[in-house]
Design a protein around this nucleic acid. Sequence first.
DNA 1: AAAATTAATGAACAGTGTTCATTTTCTTGT
DNA 2: ACAAGAAAATGAACACTGTTCATTAATTTT
Lengths: 212, 212
Amino acid sequence: MGISERKLRHKADLKKEILTAARELFTEKGWESTSIRNIAEKIEYSPATIYLYYKDKNEIIFDLHREGFRLLVNYLDVLKGVKNPFERLQAMGRAYIRFALENQDTYKLLFVMEEPMQHVASCATMDWDEGDKAFNLLMNTVQECQKQGHFTNLQTINLSFVIWSTMHGLCTLRTSGHLGHVSLVRNSNHNLDDVLTAAYEEFVKMLEQLNN
Amino acid sequence: MGISERKLRHKADLKKEILTAARELFTEKGWESTSIRNIAEKIEYSPATIYLYYKDKNEIIFDLHREGFRLLVNYLDVLKGVKNPFERLQAMGRAYIRFALENQDTYKLLFVMEEPMQHVASCATMDWDEGDKAFNLLMNTVQECQKQGHFTNLQTINLSFVIWSTMHGLCTLRTSGHLGHVSLVRNSNHNLDDVLTAAYEEFVKMLEQLNN
DNA sequence: AAAATTAATGAACAGTGTTCATTTTCTTGT
DNA sequence: ACAAGAAAATGAACACTGTTCATTAATTTT
């Protein structure tokens, strides 16, 4: 019976509409100031209706969280064409920074906010597929670098975590405004993104020195 | 006239009482769930009274922010006795991690939340003394290391920013729960703080390789 | 057409930061 | 000691927030 299927489809559509409205409000105002009532108003339904499709606000947040990860993996996946693993590692870093700067609120959603992680923790299968996928992407590249003589005396996992941390630190200190308030940076004429890039290039230099 | 002085003193006392109440509620429940009404209840005044001493919630946050920085500098200042600059740099990293883990909410207040930084930005003198002081502590140590032959081909500012970023990334990925949800870490029997320490030690190894 | 099921909502609850007219308290001058 | 004036404290309100639930509206099935 195609009728009940249409109903189901409509139900799915409405869920998508909610998510789309949430995503739009989120990207233009940030999550802090996106309320259930805002979302409801945007899709022209009552606030209570949203709770028929999402258990609570965190469930919406988590759906956007997964979308964001797909976007990040897109930024990184383009680079699998780069054959030289060390060059690929560098390009991944640059892509990571580009992602963080072009999608600041999404970046915060993925790697700063604790709510989506709490949702992962409360799931029966406590797996964080999206995070694992991205981290493995990094670890595999590091491992390939090691096969070619880079970082040979360092442990893959530890080094990968250090690299991730450095990238994460660079991006968050930039976007949270902390970097911009260090007077040495503020009085240096350089714009913030140049400072960030310069620091990243210095980090690459550091990695280059860790051969054989 | 000692009487009006006592009044002033009492006024200062009440401001301190507010801050103390805020600090206590903050450390036991986190900032998210500390409301003006909570603070007011704790000091047995009406909520409106608080606004006679603090312009808004962000001003309270900023006072705690400065307190937190004094605490951090205490963690780091103890190490000025370490004569060897590279050893001191290592010890500073360990102290930084200890500070972040022992004062997780305070750490978030200092380096993750954007509100205190916005307050800095809105001040007439846009200086961020606390941040500058801490960053200079790091930069001076890096510079001393360079004088002794470490990191000679790297720029002091860039390297300092990279080191800060790495430490910040390590600490925030740990405390936000993101590290703990990477399955490679979750399935490894090691507790999270050991993973963090191992990664930090690996980072020190990296720095060690950047001599001459 | 009536009954049963599903979808949507209005209204309420308990909470938030913040403002302001009003009241209470304290200080000063007579 | 008492009235006048200044300072401090407050109650009540405003415009929000996430969330729940009994009630109403729409749709499907009998």
